[in-house]
Amino acid sequence: MRWVALTAVAPVAWGANYFVTHEYLPAGSPLYGAALRALPAGLVLLALCGWRRPHGGWWWRSAVLGALNVSVFFALVYVASQLLPTSVASTVMAMSPLTMTLIAWPLVSERPRTAHLAGAVVGLAGVCLMLLPGADGVSVPGVLASAAAMLVSSFGHILTKRWNADTDVLASTAWQLTAGGLFLLPVAAVAEGPPPALSTPALVAFGYVSLVATALAFTAWFTGLRHLPAATMGLIGLLNPVTGVLLGTMVGTETLTVQQLCGLVLVLAGVMLGRPTRAGLRGAGRTPPRPGPHRCPAPDPPPSRPQPR
């Protein structure tokens, strides 16, 4: 269960990230906001792993995963955080359990268990209840941006699980974040002009977003992906909307309606319903080795000689 506890750090930090972005970071600069979140985190992790460089296929894999998990995902999350209340923005991401489960089936051969599917459906029902028409502050573009972020990240995380079996987690995470940040900087300069002026609270907020909600959270999440099945990871991710709702109501100015409260209860029920079994945790996270040119069949034993009498 230590892998479950470690992985839970990520969705809790991401749920708080919605609140910090909505309250303290400048609106109208999603590309710069995403770059300032990713690049410092990647450089810090690179320093921690001794500036280890990618090798072999990880040069292009880092670029692909950096684009999916960082560049596109961070920009969409920034837009969603500015357009939606914290509770709604983080709750849309609760659709990721079902999405990750379905994507993991063909990509990493993880057939979903009934309990995982049931938990994902119950959690999704809670999401739909919290997003029914009539909830205050729901922006259609914001919901679309959050849903797109969920789809992109789900696909990127399963690709990470598929490709990350024989690599150092810290180094691969560092290069994903660094590549994603480097992709974002020139696009931000062209699309948004000069970087926005940052106040002291915004600098402190970027420190949390980059070091805690990115460097620490993604390292914990990708470590969990190596040891836990994708369906379990998606259900742990339901702690994201729980954190967002609680922060939005306790710290922010948002109100928790009866409708949202019922949806929150369903989300928590989905987490409990699809919690992994002890036997599943022991073996589900292991990915069978894929054959490759470096794997050769063992030679046949030499024939035995008749012993002299």
Rank of each mutant, 00 (worst) to 15 (best):
S109D: 15
E110M: 12
R111P: 13
R113A: 04
T114M: 10
T114A: 07
T114N: 07
A115M: 04
A115L: 02
H116Q: 07
A118V: 11
G119I: 00
A120E: 01
A120I: 00
V121Q: 04
V121H: 01
G123K: 01
G123R: 00
G123I: 03
G123C: 03
L124W: 01
L124F: 09
L124H: 03
A125V: 01
A125G: 14
A125H: 08
V127C: 06
V127S: 03
V127H: 06
C128V: 13
L129S: 10
L129M: 09
L129Q: 09
L129D: 07
L129Y: 08
M130D: 05
M130N: 05
M130S: 04
M130I: 02
L131V: 03
L132W: 10
L132M: 12
L132T: 14
P133Q: 13
P133N: 14
P133E: 14
P133M: 11
A135C: 10
D136C: 15
G137F: 02
V138C: 06
V138M: 13
S139Q: 08
S139A: 07
S139F: 05
S139H: 13
V140F: 11
V140Q: 14
P141K: 15
P141L: 05
P141W: 06
G142W: 00
G142D: 08
L144R: 14
L144K: 12
L144G: 09
S146K: 04
S146Q: 10
S146A: 11
S146W: 02
S146L: 05
A147M: 11
A147Y: 09
A147I: 06
A148V: 14
A148H: 05
A149E: 06
A149Q: 08
A149L: 07
A149I: 10
M150F: 05
M150V: 01
L151M: 11
V152G: 01
V152E: 02
S153P: 12
S154A: 10
